[in-house]
Amino acid sequence: MASVRINGAKITDWASFHQIFKETCGFPDFYGMNMNAWIDCLSDLRAEYGMTQFQLANDEILYLEIHGALDLSVRLPEIISELVESTAFVNSRYLGYGQTPPLAIIFIG
């Protein structure tokens, strides 16, 4: 089981959101710091292009643990909304390839 722990209290804006995900998921130096780039990186979880530090097996899931999610959803609801939407997009992409969706979000407190 692969997982990343995101401290929602450290997300203060879009720049910090992208920096935290870049660090915790091992996105490359050329990561574009936007949601299109986030989707592209996390669409590589079962490929071998090195867009993340993870290389998942076909049935493996990467759990995104968002700690302090309730506070984050009050402070920055657009970030939570976009995170959910983008995660769904990545999972839909994998379903389109006939594969198991690779992402699950766990909202904690």
Rank of each mutant, 00 (worst) to 15 (best):
L45P: 00
I106A: 08
Q19E: 10
P28V: 02
Y49E: 14
I80K: 05
L83F: 00
C41Q: 02
V84L: 14
A47N: 13
R75S: 03
P102T: 01
F17I: 02
G109D: 15
R75W: 03
I79S: 09
I66Q: 10
G32F: 08
A37L: 08
D59K: 09
A57M: 11
Y31H: 05
F107A: 10
G68D: 01
M35T: 02
D71H: 12
L103C: 05
F107Y: 13
T87H: 05
T100E: 11
I79H: 10
L70G: 09
Q99Y: 15
H18I: 09
L42E: 02
H67F: 14
A69W: 10
D59S: 04
S86M: 13
L76E: 06
L76Q: 04
C25V: 11
N36P: 03
G50S: 03
I106Q: 13
F27Y: 06
W14A: 07
Y94K: 09
E23K: 14
F89L: 07
T12M: 09
T100C: 09
I20V: 14
L70E: 14
I61Q: 15
E82P: 02
T24P: 00
D29Q: 00
E23L: 10
L56I: 08
S73I: 02
I105D: 01
L103S: 05
L45F: 07
A47L: 11
L83P: 00
E60L: 04
S86H: 05
D71T: 09
S92N: 10
E60I: 06
I39E: 05
I80S: 05
S43V: 07
S92Y: 02
S92Q: 11
T12L: 12
I106R: 14
I39N: 06
P77R: 04
L42Y: 01
S86Q: 13
M51C: 03
N58I: 15
F89N: 02
Y97C: 03
G68I: 04
G26H: 05
N91K: 06
E85R: 15
I39M: 04
M33C: 04
I39Q: 08
F107T: 08
Y63Q: 11
L83V: 03
F30D: 15
G96C: 04
S73T: 05
I61W: 10
C25G: 12
I11D: 05
T12A: 08
G50C: 05
F30S: 06
P28Y: 07
N34I: 02
V90E: 00
S73K: 15
W38G: 01
F107S: 10
I108H: 15
G50M: 03
C41E: 01
C25F: 13
G98F: 07
A15V: 07
S86A: 12
I61A: 12
S86R: 15
W14F: 12
F89W: 00
F54K: 00
Y49H: 15
G109N: 15
S73G: 10
M35P: 06
A47H: 07
C41H: 08
